[in-house]
């Protein structure tokens, strides 16, 4: 069993220093950009060279590494890593016709740069890996950490999910039809009834391991599916509930990855219909926007709620019958293809 001991999150909302979800920070031109902190603890010379994804990842990780036990490794999920640097280097190649280029952007753009930068800064010589399976990048990192907790329950790992908005991925995903054609503010995301969503970014980091003592939450079960078929989704969810002995009557809250894209509503509805009516439903994509590793934010949110915090009204889709929030189901769907279910308890 994987236990979460600490959690940290840099997002477009007030989640980093003093967590306050009651005020919804607004989106701008269909983008929710992360509120970047002062990054205390990163030497200014190093900070200047870091691309945004690296800054977000390192910045969210550092508070967890202070006064923590020796880490056995770093396990990250990111679909694209440092795309800002990638595009800068790409533009140089074309603009200077493969002339003499500077390597900084190239080195920063490798997808594994975030995990390796955290290793350098903390002197961590342990396991170090970056999972990049698009909308299931974080889920695969989580699966990796869950295996480690079984392989050696005494060890502690840094687990995280990071992705950034760059001109590159925003443009490409826009051309793919992922984002709304008209500017839609995030407070109206779920009422727009149009195709597409809004873009987001963020980093959520966790200290995890096999020891239960003093944990925030327990990652009880995880399952993924790649499919465009809602019947398959329904079967997969039923199988997830059955094979992990989850009693739906005991679930307090369902965290939905609903993102305002009308074309994905059928999947979210399918899962909502499979729940008993008294379960409360909480949404968060109007806080974060959509990005491939947004499910890392949903796990941070699950830990936050499991600590006794309540979700403000703008996040509540349906008020649940129960006052407690110790048994949480999370569902996410990325681009109508990659689905994941998580069961978190405390």
């Amino acid at each position: 069993m994987l236990y979460i001991h600490k959690a940290s999150c840099i997002s477009p909302q007030n989640t980093f220093n003093n967590v306050d979800l009651s005020i919804l920070m607004p989106s701008f031109e269909n983008m929710l950009r992360a509120i970047e902190p002062g990054y205390e603890g990163i030497p200014p010379g190093q900070l200047r060279r870091m691309g945004k994804a690296v800054r977000l990842g390192v910045g969210a990780a550092l508070p967890l590494l202070k006064d923590s036990p020796q880490l056995a490794g770093i396990i990250l999920g990111t679909a694209n890593g440092g795309m800002e640097d990638c595009i800068k280097f790409l533009n140089q190649i074309i603009d200077y016709d493969e002339g003499t280029l500077t390597p900084t952007n190239f080195v920063q753009s490798t997808t594994n740069a975030i995990a390796s930068q955290i290793a350098f800064m903390s002197g961590n010589k342990g396991y170090n890996i970056t999972h990049v399976h698009r909308g299931l990048s974080f889920e695969n990192a989580l699966q990796d950490a869950m295996m480690h907790a079984i392989e050696d329950p005494t060890k502690t790992y840094l687990l995280g999910g990071v992705d950034e908005i760059s001109d590159y991925n925003f443009n490409i995903d826009f051309l793919l039809g992922c984002f709304k054609e008209k500017f839609t503010s995030n407070d109206a995301l779920f009422n727009a009834n149009t195709p597409g969503t809004i873009a987001g970014e963020g980093a959520a980091m966790f200290l995890v391991g096999g020891q239960k003592e003093n944990s925030l939450a327990c990652m009880h079960a995880l399952s993924v599916l790649t499919s465009t078929d809602e019947r398959e989704l329904k079967e997969s969810f039923a199988e997830f509930i059955y094979s992990n002995n989850i009693n739906l009557e005991e679930v307090d809250v369902f965290i939905s990855g609903e993102n305002g894209d009308r074309r994905q509503d059928n999947f979210n509805t399918e899962i909502e219909l499979a729940m008993p009516p008294e379960i409360g439903i909480v949404r968060y994509k109007h806080l974060t926007g959509e990005y491939p590793s947004a499910s890392a934010f949903s796990l941070w949110l699950a830990c936050h709620l499991a600590q006794g915090n309540t979700a403000p009204a703008h996040m509540v889709k349906k008020v649940g019958a129960k006052k407690t929030c110790r048994n949480i189901l999370v569902y996410n769907c990325y681009q109508g293809l990659q689905h994941s279910f998580m069961h978190v308890t405390s």
Partner: peptide, 30 residues
């Protein structure tokens, strides 16, 4: 090629081509 640039696109293509149903992952450690 809009959906073919990321590292995950290669594995996603193989998943679809062979009709794979199990766990799927892509790793990048340079």
């Amino acid at each position: 090629f809009l959906a073919s640039y990321d590292a995950g696109s290669v594995t996603l293509f193989l998943q679809k081509h062979f009709g794979l149903k199990g766990i799927a992952n892509t790793i990048n450690t340079a």
